[in-house]
Structures are given as structure tokens and as C-alpha cells.
Amino acid sequence: MEQTFFPNRARSLSGQFRWKYIPAVFWDAMQSFYTMMMLGFLITMGCLFYLWQWMNYRGIAMDVDQLTKQHASQLYRIELLEVEIDYLTRPKRLERLASSLMQLQPPEHPPRFVSLNQVREIQE
């Protein structure tokens, strides 16, 4: 006769789960070498998978970190160029250069822009 883990169980309660029998289930399973092998294999595979994922995560995190730093440094470079442009084209410098290199001076008498009709009126 096949031995069960529930020898004295009433028929009416045969489908009901009992926590106290869990250790017995494990003990029963441990009797089987193949089950243990399978369990060991699965746990090892799980650990390896976890490790693989963890390594992937760390690798990606490091890449992101590097890229973010590179991105920030490129942005700073662009900003530095902007500053340089604004420094080189500041009105005071342009005025000085225009005066010393091109002999240009601010207009003493600003140009007049009038329409032809207005000129006619003035002539009349």
C-alpha cells in the first residue's frame, strides 16, 4: 500500500491544504536525488540569470553616466563658444575695431530717410 503524508486525514478534508505538512513535503522531495538535482540546477540558473541581469544593469548605468557626462561637457563647450561670440562681438570691442581698423566713426549727422512725396513738398 502506498504511504501518503496524510494517513489520518478525514475523507471530507482530503482536498484541504495544511501548512503543517510543508516540511514533510520537502523531506519527501529530498528523498529523491533527481528532484534535488533539478532544484539545484534551477537555483543555480536563477542565480546566474540574476547575476547576468545585475551585470547588465551596472554596465548600462555606467554607460548612461558616461554619456550624461559627455553630453554635459558638450553642452558646456557650446556654451563657452556662445560666451566667446558674445565677448568678441560686444559693442565696445566692435566700435573700437571699426574705428582702428576700418576708420569708421559713429555718424555725426544721421541719415534722413524721406519719401519722394515729402521731397516734392519740400521743393515746392
Binding site: 544721421p110 541719415p111 534722413r112 530717410f113 524721406v114 515729402q118 521731397v119 519740400i122
Partner: peptide, 19 residues
């Protein structure tokens, strides 16, 4: 730009080619 209609200012009027 300067207005030409101002008195005493009609000596140095230049015509804008855009007008």
C-alpha cells in the same frame, strides 16, 4: 529716423531709395 518736417533741418535731406 529723423523727421524732415522739423524746421531748420531741411539742409541735409537724403532720399531713401526704398520709398
Amino acid at each position: 529716423f529723423p523727421e524732415p518736417s522739423q524746421p531748420n533741418d531741411q539742409e541735409s535731406i537724403r532720399v531713401s531709395r526704398n520709398d
